[in-house]
Design a protein around this nucleic acid. Structure first.
Lengths: 223, 223
DNA sequence: ATATCGAAAATTGTCGACAATATAATCCTT
DNA sequence: AAGGATTATATTGTCGACAATTTTCGATAT
């Protein structure tokens, strides 16, 4: 199932979460080597649990591993971010299509409520929206797809990579109001049970987001 | 990178491949429990490497694991197959779109050559096509996307699950000639560098495939 | 006979030690 | 002194043993 409500029970779980947090938030820099012995002392667990934690990070594509050599945190690159967004566009587009078909009326009502709440925040000039609000919005639609493969791929894998890019490249720009309108249209399509339109709008929404980020990246590297 | 050319170097690699093969080909039945001790004696390795192999199978969504309880082979269900094909439609559609943009002229020429070879086989009544030929075709387009995330998701994860379903549900039906025409149109779109059309055709191709399988499943369960 | 509680067995989680491999340092040759 | 081979060091891979948890089985009470 892989809903992130499940609390960590084993030491490997906790170490995995700690490590991921440290990597995603940049305390362990991207591209750096992950020494099993070092992490073992740092987190006060045996090498075996560190190995398992690293192994899971590998399946999230957050670290890369070579046999007999070791694991490194993936290095962030503009190309990598673009590739990531292409996958995201594809999968979240499908999620929106399926959500239009499978979400219950109650879930759609909740989604509209969430949107209204965001509207108030945008109106008041709160930029809180971009951070957690955007995530929450996308997350609900992903769950609404009711497709466990899709849910797992997005929430366990891609989501954290995207966040890693956002945090480490300092993506916290504007694009609040236009994104809100896009969200509104997506919800409308879902409310109308128009899966095809919902997919199209979601894909464009993510494409815009990608373009926006690319713009910042290039302008930064040039000036 | 995760190209499957890389030969296994470590014992965990080999055990992972053996285990996956046994599961995908049905020698270890779906839904059954994976006892670490049992597998440890069966493959003549320590429990640690069995654990690592299972851990990797978990990240492929081939086994499910519960803390302090153990791992089970995923159980196949019609719903699971449908979910899988929805993800596949989404990702391979994007792969076709990107392939139209990123494949070199040489690669496209090779793809046409492959298609001609398939045409000869179909003409001669060989049904070899459906098995390896289809995989080869899709595989080249996936690689042609040049998107490492996409490649990894499809070839490491989804591909083997699809094969597991195919083998265990005995999917080796006809649908040879119509599939060939679909392949032909996809290659034409890629040759014309029309990514949008390539994506659309690939998605329809996979949708047809899904419907075909659903048809067989329902007719089988009814008699 | 059924249900509940508790002990025993089996299974997974964790650990430290050893083996195999890769990396670094040293020595030898030219 | 530079390059290559060789030894030394460090890191990862593998193993068996112990701890913690779950499951099984049996005893007891209702």
């Amino acid at each position: 199932m892989s809903f992130f409500n499940e609390k960590p029970v084993t030491n490997a779980d906790k170490t995995f979460l700690l490590l991921r947090k440290d990597i995603v938030e940049g305390q362990i820099p991207s591209g750096s080597k992950l020494s099993e012995a070092e992490l073992s002392t740092k987190y006060a667990v045996s090498r075996a649990v560190v190995r398992e934690a690293i192994s899971r990070l590998e399946s999230c594509n957050i670290v890369e591993r070579k046999a007999n050599v070791g694991a490194r945190v993936v290095s962030l690159s503009p190309e990598g971010l673009i590739e990531l967004y292409q996958v995201r566009e594809s999968l979240e587009g499908m999620a929106a299509r399926l959500a239009a078909k499978h979400m219950s009326d109650d879930e759609i009502a909740d989604l509209n409520t969430l949107l209204s709440k965001h509207f108030e925040e945008v109106k008041d000039g709160d930029s809180y929206y971009q951070e957690a609000g955007d995530v929450d919005f996308h997350y609900r639609i992903i769950l609404g797809s009711k497709n466990n493969h899709l849910i797992s791929l997005l929430t366990d894998g891609i989501y954290h990579l995207v966040r890693m890019y956002r945090v480490q490249l300092g993506m916290t720009g504007p694009r609040v109001t236009t994104a809100f309108d896009e969200h509104k249209h997506i919800v409308q399509a879902i409310s109308n049970r128009d899966g095809e339109l919902a997919e199209m709008l979601m894909r464009r929404h993510i494409l815009y987001s990608k373009s926006n980020i690319e713009l910042k990246l290039t302008s930064r590297s040039q000036g």
